[in-house]
C-alpha cells in the first residue's frame, strides 16, 4: 500500500512502463481467475475420465442393467442418450419457432412501452429455477395433457409418435419436452430479440420503401440478418435442455426402452435425470457407470457448444462483409 504514494522513478520509466499497484492487482486477479477456470474445467474432465474408466473397461455382466439389455456400457448408455436427445430436440423444435415469434413481437411489433416490459419479463423467466418448471409440469401440465393424448392415441395412433397406450397421469415424453421447451424459451427469445434489434435500419427502410408490409419487411431484412443469431440462441437452449435434471426427474415416468412413443408411461430416461435418480443408491462400479454416462453428456454438450461457437463466428464474417 505504501508504494502507491511514492513518487514515480522517472529514470526507470523509459524502459519499463509505470504500472500502478491497482492495475497490477487487478491484472493479477483477472489472470488468476482465468487460470482457475481452466484448472477447474480440466479437473472436471480428468475426474470424469478417471472415474469413468473402470466402467468403460468392465465386463458387460458387471454393469447395472436397468434396461432390458445388459450387454455392456454402450447398451446401458444408449437409451439414456436417446432419451436425452429426444427430449431436448423436441423441446427445441417447439421452443425455437415460438421464441422467434415472441422475439419478433418484442422487437418489431409491440409498442415501445409494452416491448420493454415484455423484454424484462422474458429475462426474468430465464432466471426461474428449473425445479419450479418441473413442479408446474407435474401438477398443471401433465393432467391437462391426458385428454388430448387419449384423443391422439384414438385418432392418430397409426403414427408411431402417438402409438400409446396413452398415460393416465400424463408423465409422458411429450410433457417432459414441453416443460423443457418452456424452460429454454426465455434464453432463445432473449438472444433472438437482441439480434433482431440490431438489424440495420438501412435494410429495413429499403424494404419498406419498396412497398413492403411490416411482415414482408421482417422477411426481407430482419430474418435473413437474424438467421445465425436464431441458430446460436437455439444452440444455447439446446445446451440447457440436454443438461436439465430436476424438471425431467420430476415429470418423466421412466421404464428405459428406446421408443419414439411420446404419450405413454414407458419412456427412456435422460442421462442427467438418471444420474440424479440412481446416484444415491449406487456403490462401487455402479457409480463409475453413472459417471461414465456423465462423460457422454459432457461430450455431447461440448459438441453442441462448439457448433454454436462455429455458427456465431461465421456470422461475424457475414456482418464484416457489409
Amino acid at each position: 500500500m505504501n508504494t502507491s504514494t511514492a513518487a514515480p522513478k522517472t529514470t526507470t520509466s523509459a524502459t519499463r512502463p509505470i504500472r500502478r499497484p491497482g492495475d497490477r492487482i487487478f491484472a493479477g486477479a483477472a489472470a488468476g481467475a482465468g487460470v482457475l477456470i481452466l484448472v477447474i474445467l480440466a479437473g472436471v474432465a480428468v475426474f470424469l475420465l478417471v472415474q469413468a474408466y473402470p466402467a468403460l473397461v468392465a465386463a458387460p455382466e458387471e454393469l447395472p442393467t436397468p434396461s432390458a439389455g445388459g450387454e455392456g456400457f454402450v447398451a446401458y448408455v444408449w437409451p439414456l442418450l436417446f432419451g436425452t436427445l429426444l427430449s431436448a430436440t423436441l423441446a427445441l423444435l417447439v421452443a425455437t419457432p415460438l421464441a422467434v415469434c415472441v422475439a419478433l413481437f418484442i422487437s418489431h411489433y409491440a409498442p415501445r412501452k409494452l416491448s420493454q416490459g415484455l423484454g424484462y419479463l422474458v429475462d426474468l423467466l430465464a432466471a426461474v429455477p428449473s425445479i419450479i418448471f418441473g413442479l408446474w409440469g407435474l401438477a398443471v401440465l401433465a393432467p391437462l395433457t391426458v385428454p388430448p393424448t387419449r384423443w391422439l392415441e384414438d385418432n392418430l395412433g397409426f403414427i408411431p409418435l402417438f402409438a400409446g397406450p396413452a398415460s393416465a397421469i400424463g408423465r409422458t415424453m411429450l410433457v417432459a419436452a414441453l416443460v423443457l421447451a418452456v424452460m429454454i424459451l426465455p434464453i432463445v427469445t432473449a438472444v433472438a430479440r437482441e439480434v433482431f434489434l440490431q438489424t440495420p435500419l438501412l435494410h429495413q427502410e429499403a424494404a419498406l420503401a419498396l412497398g413492403a408490409t411490416r411482415w414482408e419487411m421482417v422477411q426481407l431484412a430482419v430474418l435473413p440478418f437474424g438467421r445465425s443469431g436464431i441458430i446460436s440462441g437455439a444452440m444455447l437452449g439446446l445446451g440447457r435442455a440436454l443438461g436439465e435434471t430436476m424438471a425431467i426427474t420430476i415429470v418423466l415416468s421412466v421404464s428405459g426402452g428406446v421408443t419414439f412413443n411420446l404419450i405413454s408411461d414407458g419412456n427412456p430416461a435422460t442421462i442427467a435425470a438418471n444420474i440424479a435418480l440412481e446416484f444415491p443408491e449406487s456403490t462401487g462400479l455402479d457409480v463409475n457407470t453413472l459417471i461414465a454416462t456423465g462423460l457422454v453428456l459432457f461430450a455431447v454438450t461440448l459438441i453442441v457448444n462448439l457448433l454454436a461457437r462455429y455458427v456465431i463466428n461465421r456470422r461475424r464474417d457475414f456482418s464484416g462483409a457489409n
Binding site: E205, A206, L220, A221, P224
Partner: peptide, 30 residues
C-alpha cells in the same frame, strides 16, 4: 410507397440476396 419509390443516401442492397433477387424483391411483394 409502391407508387413513390425511394433511393437512399447509402446504397442498401439486401446483403443476403443475389443481384437478381434484389431486383426481384419488390416485384415479389404483396
Amino acid at each position: 410507397r409502391r407508387q413513390i419509390g425511394m433511393v437512399f443516401q447509402r446504397p442498401n442492397p439486401f446483403p443476403t440476396m443475389s443481384i437478381y433477387e434484389n431486383v426481384a424483391a419488390g416485384l415479389r411483394l404483396n
